[in-house]
Design a protein around this nucleic acid. Structure first.
Lengths: 356, 356
DNA sequence: TTGTAGGCGTTATCAC
DNA sequence: GTGATAACGCCTACAA
């Protein structure tokens, strides 16, 4: 009569206790708890009464363990680069909402943690059967771990751009098309020399947006303009200085396209403090919206994403993969719509400065 | 010969398989895997070889289930009010770092979710034995659920201020003292009429900071100034307008203390666009720091928190409670230091405007 | 409609 | 050093 009982904090109320109390079997109790059919009303009442009296709560872990379905998903975010609070806030809301709707819980992980590389961490989580699948939020370009995991048959969905080509399941926006569209809008207003503030050539998102910028120029019949492509590394501060430098070096520039929201604000500040007027002297467009962008003086035109929808859709896609009979043969890809927020930072190209 | 096997996806490699393969028992395998003492080198090698060959990974869930320790913690955040990205970013980093150090994982939850009230959700998580304890990040004032849970003996730690008095375990900063100190600094520069932008009277954090402001005035021998207390509801926009209104109504005001960072920027913008000079005409101090505050022209003095440390400490406190023999009798309380970042937005009180 | 048996993958206990 | 056994709390399968 040796017991392997590990460590009982006090006494955990189990279905057994309910069974003893009511004189029924554990099974009948379980049936009541899970709303099975074929349970007499009498029995149901007795069980529920005992549940209340003893303060019983089913052990989620035990259940999940038995069924082999943990209903746990890993969500991995690059905390270190979590700049845009509105984006991640809404992304989270979408993810959590969807998870709740489907009875899943989310395990939080940081892909930029110094302690453990994300590949190892993720692999451990999945292989150890703690989580059923992974949601990777906006991995950095040089991250190829989503692809490695996909090859190992780990169910996962990536939000945002990846460096993994079309080989992983993905939910995001058409960065390239959005950028292209923005440039075309500027071109229609008569802008022929359009500067662009980029952030990092190695970053996939940046690459896509920049490619869209180039496509836009071409579609508008404007010449490529390598000299107007200015890296400002995600930095508001750099954008401030770089925008000024750009306009001094190229007085014919009449519009600036900032590939993220921080750089847009930085550029706007820089231009204003040079004494330039937006949009009188120069037009400005931001990729990504924010409260600051919207409330700037003047309000800045922006490409707005709907991160809530991205998060919700990504989570739903993951759950679909997990609960679907078969894994999809080809990687799934879903593009979420964006909206161009036309505000007063855009106007017809000014010729005053350009001709000097 | 009836089996209760629920649903085997394919074939899960278990310790049993390793045991069969090596001709050893499950127990010995387990001992090797957990680096127990009393295992011969020979045996260890054989087991490890089989582990590699069969691609075995221990089932984390089963282990946690058996031991009754899920090593899962619930982290609850008010996503809807997650304004300041730097604060939560660093808080998360601290929490995750600490959790990783101690072998815990974090389950993410949103206390502002419309789908389920946080009390129910938290209770379900803990009573269902899915998580061992809770980390509640900056609950709103009117949230008394931390107290309810504490009374139900749920292990939890709150970061930030709470409406629960001293009755819950807590890690935060001394909002009151920090505000008091800031006001005293302004008073020492000769400021006698100091306006304050608050956010929400029902919000505990706001209350504490405001109380500190009042204490500061008193300690400096300045009269209470109910007419200088202006609500701007966390809003940058409102702060813009309210700061202007305040200065028009009270030309003798020479300093403004904004109780959060967003309002500080809004106020600064508002003052500048009135043609006022900071700090020439008016001094400005922000509660909470940010990149924008630091890079503003002029850089704005701010009370800087260390959210990473708050998060790390809170997580450590929770783990301490969980792993400590007995629950603490009195609620724990830990205050994390802050730092006053003295920047050029503060100067000696100007008399030019005050006398009109 | 309810009960019995068995097992999910692991580890604690005790015996050898 | 190693192995047999039981048990964690629950649920599927089958029998009654």
């Amino acid at each position: 009569m040796k017991k392997a009982t590990p460590r009982k904090p006090a006494h955990t109320v189990t279905t057994k206790d309910i069974a003893d109390r009511t004189g029924l079997s554990k099974m009948t109790v379980s049936r009541v708890l899970n709303n099975h059919q074929y349970v007499s009303e009498e029995t149901r009442r007795k069980v529920m009464a005992a549940v209340r009296e003893l303060g019983f709560t089913p052990n989620t872990l035990a259940k999940r363990f038995f069924t082999g379905k943990t209903r746990l998903l890993g969500v991995v975010i690059p905390l270190e680069y979590m700049f845009s609070s509105y984006y991640f806030k809404e992304l989270f809301q979408g993810v959590l909402e969807c998870a709740e709707e489907h009875g899943y819980d989310m395990l939080l992980n940081d892909s930029t943690s110094k302690r453990m590389p994300p590949l190892e961490k993720c692999r451990g989580l999945v292989k150890g059967k703690l989580v059923e699948g992974l949601l990777l939020a906006a991995p950095m370009t040089y991250d190829d771990y989503p692809l490695v995991l996909t090859k190992e048959a780990v169910p996962l969905v990536v939000t945002g751009e990846t460096a993994c080509g079309e080989k992983v399941n993905r939910v995001g926006i058409s960065n390239r098309e959005c950028a292209r569209d923005a440039v075309l809008r500027l071109a229609k207003l008569g802008h022929r020399r359009i500067g662009v503030l980029t952030f990092d050539e190695k970053h996939q998102e940046s690459q896509e947006r920049l490619a869209g910028y180039k496509e836009g120029l071409e579609a508008a019949g404007l010449p490529a303009a390598a000299d107007l492509i200015v890296p400002a590394h995600y930095s508001r501060r750099e954008a401030f200085a770089e925008a000024q430098r750009l306009l001094k070096a190229h007085p014919d520039v009449t519009a600036i396209f900032a590939l993220n929201e921080g750089m847009a604000v930085g550029a706007a500040d820089g231009l204003c403090s040079m004494g330039l007027n937006i949009p009188g002297d120069i037009s400005l467009v931001s990729f990504d919206d924010s409260a600051e962008i919207e409330n700037y003086d003047p309000p800045i035109s922006a490409i707005r994403q709907f991160p809530h929808k991205i998060g919700h859709s990504a989570c739903k896609m993951l759950i679909g993969i997990l609960e679907g009979e078969a894994r999809p043969r080809k990687p799934l890809s879903l593009m979420i719509d964006t909206q161009f927020m036309e505000r007063s930072s855009m106007a017809l190209a000014s010729t005053k400065r350009g001709r000097r």
